[in-house]
């Protein structure tokens, strides 16, 4: 379980997160929607401490993320992350991309790591691309590679940061399908997304973030069908 309490975050003088309280339960798929610059990506980065926080507290399975005593590298293994830019390691094949961190972080043997990586890639439909270098893969394939790479650490949670925003429109579908598959398998997911269809169909809950605070949170039916907040309905009317 991820618990976020009274979280504040500043970038210099800009107050990006203004008191976020949020719980994410095991097995839940939470989508975070909101305008660009509303702080939703920053919130995600705070959860695995790629960004520091200024006030408040985040705990993952009871471990405080930003405490000095926390072994953050160990905690991050629980928190898989996929970014807007797929960030494939360009000097490694698809297989090596996925096998690298199991081998060096989880200390698996080279052959075990490669076997795991091959399984992960096959599962996500890249079984025929094991020995391809990233520059021979499409954006959609590279993004699926990034998902396989994160999953190879066998995380308990997956954080998705606008994973389809940098893709050509015709490639968005394959990545969303991969995320859907993962949701069906019961992975706990936090998805910052602009894909309203995905948020509505796949999420258990949807949070609308406005100006660094959670304006409204609820089931997809509530948020998309009958939002309580004036701001939420205005935002949704604009993105549709």
């Amino acid at each position: 379980m991820i618990e976020i309490r009274a979280l504040h975050k500043y970038f210099d003088d800009v107050h990006v997160l203004r008191g976020i309280d949020l719980d994410v339960n095991k097995g839940e798929v939470l989508s975070i929607i909101g305008a660009s610059g509303s702080g939703k990506s920053t919130l995600l980065y705070c959860i695995n401490a790629l960004e520091g926080i200024d006030e408040g507290r985040i705990t993952v399975d009871g471990v405080e993320v930003h405490a000095k005593s926390t072994d953050i590298n160990k905690l991050r293994q629980k928190l898989g992350m996929v970014f807007q830019q797929w960030n494939s390691f360009p000097h490694l094949t698809a297989l090596e991309n996925v096998a690298l961190s199991p081998r060096i972080v989880r200390k698996m043997s080279r052959s075990d790591a490669r076997e795991l990586a091959a399984r992960r890639l096959e599962h996500i439909g890249l079984g025929d691309k094991l020995n391809s270098y990233p520059n021979a893969l499409s954006g959609g394939q590279q993004q699926r590679l990034a998902i396989a790479r994160a999953l190879a650490m066998e995380p308990s949670y997956m954080l998705f940061d606008e994973t389809t925003s940098a893709l050509d429109p015709e490639l968005v579908g394959e990545v969303l399908d991969a995320m859907r598959l993962l949701a069906e398998e019961g992975m706990t997911m936090i998805c910052v997304t602009h894909e309203m269809g995905f948020a509505r169909d796949v999420s258990d809950r949807v949070a609308y973030i406005h100006d660094g605070t959670i304006e409204e949170i609820g089931t997809p039916e509530q948020i998309f069908g009958n939002p309580e907040s004036e701001r939420t309905s205005r935002f949704l009317a604009n993105v549709r």
């Binding site: 695995n48 790629l50 991050r76 928190l79 970014f83 830019q85 960030n87 390691f89 972080v105 989880r106």
Partner: peptide
């Protein structure tokens, strides 16, 4: 971004 991706996989600074 590339370095954050590496760190998000649990790699240490030196890894």
């Amino acid at each position: 971004p590339m370095r954050r991706a590496a760190r998000s996989l649990g790699m240490t600074y030196w890894q």
